[in-house]
Amino acid sequence: MPERELTFAQAVREALAEEMRRDSGVFILGEDVAEAGTPFKVLSGLVEEFGSQRVVDTPISEAGFTGVAVGAAMTGMRPVVDIMFGDFITLTMDQMVNQAAKVHYMSGGHWKVPMVMRTTLGATRRSAAQHSQSLQAWFSHVPGLKVVLPSTPYDAKGLLKSAIRDDNPVVFFEDKMMYKLKGPVPEEEYTIPLGVADIKRAGDDITLIATSSMVQVALGAANLLLKEGISAEVVDPRTTWPLDEKTLIDSAQKTSRVIVLDEGYGRYGVTSELAAVVAEGAFYDLDAPVKRMGAMHVPIPFSPPLEDVTVPTEETVFEVARKMCGK
């Protein structure tokens, strides 16, 4: 029997539905999450099954309802907050950074904040500067938060189920360009632990460490590289924190060349941190400086030809990798 395939959006929805059936404390809170099912239709059908008490439409008040989620999480529930566009996390920063991330530590371990914030990342949707950013570095910087960056439907489902069961605030970034991506997702129950990287493709000559949207780009580049006789390994950390440093370093030591890819800004960003981890852990095994590739350091422009050059593509990654391998 062929393996069942789901889209990324269906995998996210299935994870939510399963966890909501399993635990009555799990509920969804956000703008147009109920009948509208979000503009991306990721949540379609959930309000019909679980009702408006558990799939809760809010006013356009990101700070307010994120704060409500923190308080609900502290007092026995497991909220899943929906922040429609990743750009809007700016509005929630005090609640996430000063409240959710610190409550457990500041209280000497007495209070817990088991909540998930689901939001999006990614450019190339022609949405311009305030609907196209990939701001995962911001939350990755903060002790007390966990940050998840799924790259396949399988990972999205397994990681989201773990995020919901986690007793800490977890931020879950979904690439909006990936919602229609299909991939195998088994019918049976499974979870994927946070903090375990996945080798998406094995190779010997160069390592492409890639997150979220950039995993598909890296896999495409790896196909192009193979035609040049270059065997690329694609490593997906899956979470920026907790971070599986060992898998990244092991791969770097094996291939001796590393490109780090993340759709956020490189400066002080996820790629900078991952590159530093590799440099510190595998310095004596490297044959070339670690290369970072991410969004150009500009606000994401609207005009399609301008926007298209702001983020790495299969072709640009292929070119950089080919040169690094001396071909």
Binding site: F65, G71, N98, Q99
Partner: peptide, 22 residues
Amino acid sequence: NLGANAIVGGSVGIATGAAFSA
């Protein structure tokens, strides 16, 4: 006691969330 808060107005969401939960 859900906690004292050193951000002015920082706990208004938490208190409202506790009420939501209650």
